[in-house]
Amino acid sequence: MKRPVVLYIATSLDGYIARENGDIHWLYEAESEGDGGYGEFYETIDTVLMGNTTYRHTFKLADHFPYPDKKCYVFSRSEQEPSPYATFVTEDIPTFIEKLKQQEGSKIWIVGGAEILDALMKSRLVDEFIITMMPTILGSGIPLFKEDNPELKLVLVGTKPYGQMVQLHYTVKS
């Protein structure tokens, strides 16, 4: 059985993951309960995927790398200096993910960037969507989904409120 690729992310009610300038501080303004299900989800994965911009941004948000116990792959258009936290990947995203899904392991988490998600969406490589709707309408910003994605039929696994937020969990219908 192939390892599932999971999008676990928060979005504004109008579908944005960040402001135009990449700012995500609005995510921390909502009234929440606990960690919003993050700890429970984190235990189900062993691999994280992200773009180089997201990777660099993690060091601005935290005092330490937030995923030290997970295998981390960072996609970049150019060669990068080696890192103790991540393996940099310059090959085609869908090709790399197809190989990764064949390996032994747990779920694979798409941490971010919009470009990574877009490549995986267009290749139909996302198996689960866990999206937390924030009680915010941004009006503009970086959209969760870009245009021209294939149509996907989803199956609702569940919903869960966390204070003012609601988490939606879907799998892709086979």
Rank of each mutant, 00 (worst) to 15 (best):
P143L: 05
Y42F: 11
I97F: 04
K70I: 05
P143Y: 05
R77F: 01
L49K: 00
Y85F: 15
S76M: 01
T58Y: 06
Q102S: 15
Q103D: 12
F75K: 03
T95W: 04
E43R: 06
R124Y: 03
A114I: 04
F88S: 03
T44V: 02
I137W: 03
T58Q: 09
P84F: 10
D69Y: 06
M50P: 01
T90G: 12
C72W: 03
V74Y: 00
P84S: 12
T136P: 01
L117T: 08
T132Y: 14
I130D: 06
M133V: 14
P143F: 05
C72F: 07
T95H: 09
R124T: 06
L117H: 03
E79C: 04
P82T: 11
F129Y: 15
Q103S: 15
K101E: 06
T47D: 00
A62H: 15
P94Q: 14
P82M: 13
M50A: 02
G139E: 05
L120K: 08
T58S: 06
T54R: 13
D69G: 03
T90R: 13
T58F: 08
H64W: 02
P94W: 11
E104V: 04
I142P: 03
I137T: 11
S83L: 10
A62D: 14
F129T: 08
L61D: 13
C72N: 15
N52Y: 13
D46G: 03
L120W: 02
E98A: 14
